[in-house]
Simulated assay, not measured.
Amino acid sequence: MPVPVQRDPEQTRRALAAWLAARSPRAGEVEVGPVRVPGAAGFSGEILMCDAEWTGSGPPRREPLAVRVAPTGHRVHPDDRWADQVRLLEVLDGTDVPVAPLLGHEPDPSVLGAPFLVMRRIEGRVPADLPSYHREGWLAALPPHRRRAVWLGGVEMLAAIHRLDPDALGLGFLDRPRYGTGHLTQQLAEYTRFLPFYGADGNRTATTALAWLHEHRPEEPAPPRLLWGDARLGNIVYDGETPAAVLDWEMAALGRPESDLAWFLHLDRHLSEGIGAVRLAGLPGRAETVRHYERLTGHAVRDLEYYEVFAAFRFCVLTARVTRLLEESGIMPPGTDFPLHRNATRLLARVLEEAADRCGGTAVPR
């Protein structure tokens, strides 16, 4: 679900053309084509697509561009950490993790009304969330063995990210010590503080899950790894069955890799079981995914069940925020029974019940 259009397309086109020309005066004039919003974009950031052509003294040069604009009116997270996202993309561009090349960024909000960055658009296909790739689309149309390759390619992207050395890359800026020490401590403290911001403070399943997460928090052995944050098939551009680019780093952090792996598994579970869809044949299951990840990284996965509750809780909270934004923007009347949040809450209750059964007792309010 894309962010609603927040700007005049023609004015935006002219502003981008002037900005690009000013950054490369030797390349001559810049012509920017129509600006459009991709239908498969997420709700947490404004994405604009366009093509630019430089007409200097040499042969014309054309570039497909993706412009990401910092969130303003439609902010899913209480702190967008925009500067950290830009800095992380600059760092990752020199690693084995494929990201769209960053062509430039603008911190001055006067150009487009908010800071923005411009990337070279990577052509390819992305598994869709809406409608779920388990129900239709290019992934569903593939034979099972090719679906398997797509899934394992996603796991390989997780492994590539987690093999990076945060200290060597200078990624300490992703730490959030004002919320405590360690990723879990920081995240749980932040969600506890901002639950009303997300609109989830009245959700009994979410508040019960948060209490359970505090009570059962596992150790966080050092050193932490880089976490993608929004690790899922829908944030990967594929060239055939091969990942060509990893997208969306706004939830990046430092912590235990199980956090990413659990999110990857849970978001797929939401898009199948969570919405009542049959999971595609050929996609490896949880156990095989974990084994493949462990072979790729040499990391023995531990406490995955805890991190799956953590993933289900975070997704429930984020969908509560999206529901609030839809109501505030007038897209959806207040009080509407929004399936996204309802399904996320139901699946959280199921995941929490499974965890409670393993630990003994009942964790979900009756």
Rank of each mutant, 00 (worst) to 15 (best):
Q6H: 06
R7Y: 01
R7Q: 03
P9Y: 03
T12H: 06
A18N: 08
R23C: 10
E31T: 13
V32Q: 11
V35W: 11
V35C: 15
A41M: 01
F43P: 12
I47K: 14
I47T: 15
I47S: 15
A52E: 07
W54Q: 12
S57Y: 04
R61D: 13
R62K: 14
A66E: 11
V69S: 07
A70L: 06
P78S: 09
W82I: 12
V86D: 09
V97T: 09
V111F: 11
L112H: 00
P115Y: 11
I122M: 12
V126D: 07
P131Y: 07
L139W: 14
P143C: 05
R147C: 08
A149G: 02
A149Q: 13
L158N: 10
A159F: 06
H162P: 08
L164C: 03
P166N: 07
D167G: 11
R176W: 12
R178W: 11
H183L: 12
Q186M: 09
Q187S: 15
A189T: 09
R193F: 09
P196N: 09
A200P: 00
A206S: 09
T208W: 07
A209P: 04
A209T: 06
L213W: 10
R217D: 04
E220G: 00
E220S: 01
E220T: 01
P221V: 03
W228T: 05
W228P: 02
W228H: 11
G234E: 13
I236P: 06
E250G: 09
L261G: 12
W263L: 14
L265I: 15
H266E: 14
H266M: 14
I275H: 01
G276M: 08
G276A: 08
G276I: 05
V278D: 13
A281M: 10
L283S: 01
R286A: 14
E305D: 15
F310P: 03
A312C: 05
R314Y: 10
C316D: 07
E327V: 06
E328L: 12
E328P: 01
G330K: 01
P334C: 02
G335W: 00
T336K: 00
A349M: 06
V351G: 07
D357N: 02
G360I: 06
A363F: 14
